[in-house]
Amino acid sequence: MKKLINSTDAVVDEALAGMVAAHGDLLRVIEPNVVVRADAPRQGKVGIISGGGSGHEPMHGGFVGMGMLDAACPGAVFTSPVPDQMLAATKAVDGGAGVLHIVKNYTGDVMNFELAAELAQAEGIEVTSVVIADDVAVKDSLYTAGRRGVGGTVLAEKIVGAAAEAGQDLAAVTALAQRVQDNVRSMGMALTSCTVPAAGKPTFELGEDEMEIGIGIHGEPGRERRKLAGADEITEALMGPILDDGGFGSGDDVLAFVNGMGGTPLIELYIVYNKVAAMCAERGIAIARNLVGSYITSLEMAGCSITLLKLDDEMTRLWDAPVHTPALRWGA
C-alpha cells in the first residue's frame, strides 16, 4: 500500500485537523468528530446534516458552510458514523427550527441515523430524515437493501441547503429533499479498485483489461465485470439505465453531473461529459445546469459516475443560489 498518510489509525483525525487548518473561517470540528459550520447554530434556520463513512471527500465535510450543510458526521473510512456523532451534530446546529438528516441508503448509515434521530427526539429536537437512494445499478426490490445513495446526495445537499438558508421550514425542506430523491438517478463504474488504509490491500482485483460496471462508492464490487471499453461506450452503458429508469425524455430540463471516483483526471471526465451532452441532445433533453469534477469519491479508485436530476424551477433557482463551502463555492 502506497498512501500519503502518517499512520492508518490517524487518517480521519488528521484529515479533519487539516480541514480546520485550511477552512477555519467556514467550519470547526467538535467532539466526537463532527464538522460544524462556523456560525452554527443559526436561530430560526432549519439545520441540515449529513454523514457517512470517510473516503468520499469532499463529501460530506467539504460541503459544510453557507448555503449547504450545517454539519457533517464522518465515520471511519467506508464505515458509517456512530449515533453519538449525529446526536452531537443535531444539537450543535439546532436553531429551534428542527433538523433534517440527509442519509445515504446503506444499511449501517440508515440504522445509525435512526438511532440518533430517536435520541435527538428524546431530547426535544424535531428531526426528519430523507434517505437518498439513486443508484440504478441496484435492483430496487424487497430482495435487496434497496438502491444505494450516491451522486444524487451532492445535489440534494446543495439544493436543500439553499432552501434552508432561504428560511424554508422543516416540512418544506424535507419535502424538497424527497423531491430531489424522487427525480434523481445515478450509475457508476470503476477502472481500478481502492485500498482502505486500515485494510492495507485493494478491496477487489481488476485485471488490466477489465472494468466494473455499476460500482458503489465503497469499493464494493459492482453488478457486472466487463472487458474495458472506450469512454463513449462506457458512458452509454451508464446512461442507458439512468435514462430508462428515470423516464428522462424530450422537453425535460436536467442537471447533468459527471463525477470522478477519486483517481480519474478531469480531462477524462470531460470526455465522458461530452458524450453525456450528445446523448441528451439526441433525446431532446436540455442540460440546464451541470457539474463536472470529483465530489463523491471512493478513495483513489479510478472511474466515474453519472447523475441526472430532473429540474423544476425551484430546484434550478436553489441550485444557483449562493454557496460557500470548501468544495463548492459560487455567488458568495
Binding site: P32, G53, G75, S80, V82, D84, G108, M111, N112, L115
Partner: peptide
C-alpha cells in the same frame, strides 16, 4: 458508540 457500520447498531 465505537463500531459504526451496520454491526454497531
Amino acid at each position: 458508540s465505537t463500531v459504526g457500520g451496520a454491526s454497531g447498531p
